[in-house]
């Protein structure tokens, strides 16, 4: 099963995998060989790839979509990086910035909620990466 993750800038990941776990907007979703065609909305979080040799690769992705069909899992995301490349301080700063945003109208509140959720997920992922 092939797993491809692309950002608007480049193709970040292209691997042969046995099993893929993607972070959907409301929790993790696992895709194995022969999965039914599916399109899902991604949240921010950890993308886990179990490779052919049973080793596990971890990536961080932020928003976008996953499409699985014909044993190809493709992720369209705005940001993708190796788990180990996450910077905890930067993530915390992003969370603070998100928390300081105004929420004076329903639209602004919605934008803020989304920004905060994304930033929290990044902090969580960065903390997890730092513990490893």
């Amino acid at each position: 099963m092939k797993c491809v993750a692309v950002t608007p800038e480049k193709k970040v990941v292209e691997r042969e995998t046995k099993f893929v776990v993607v972070p959907l907007y409301d929790g993790e979703y696992a895709i194995g060989v022969g999965h039914t065609p599916v399109v899902g909305r991604l949240g921010a979080g950890e993308l886990r790839l179990t490779l052919e040799d049973d080793s596990v690769e971890r990536w961080y992705v932020e928003g976008g979509f996953v499409e699985a069909a014909n044993d190809v899992v493709s992720l369209l995301t705005t940001r993708a990086c190796k788990f180990s490349e996450l910077d905890l301080n930067e993530a915390k700063q992003a969370l603070n910035d998100a928390l300081e945003r105004p929420a004076t109208s329903p639209e602004l509140r919605e934008i803020k909620t989304k920004a905060v959720a994304t930033a929290r997920a990044r902090v969580r992922a960065a903390e997890k990466a730092a513990r490893r």
């Binding site: 959907l24 979703y29 065609p37 599916v38 399109v39 909305r41």
Partner: peptide
């Protein structure tokens, strides 16, 4: 011609 399931 695949029929996709959409989440959510």
């Amino acid at each position: 011609n695949l029929q996709f399931e959409f989440l959510p």
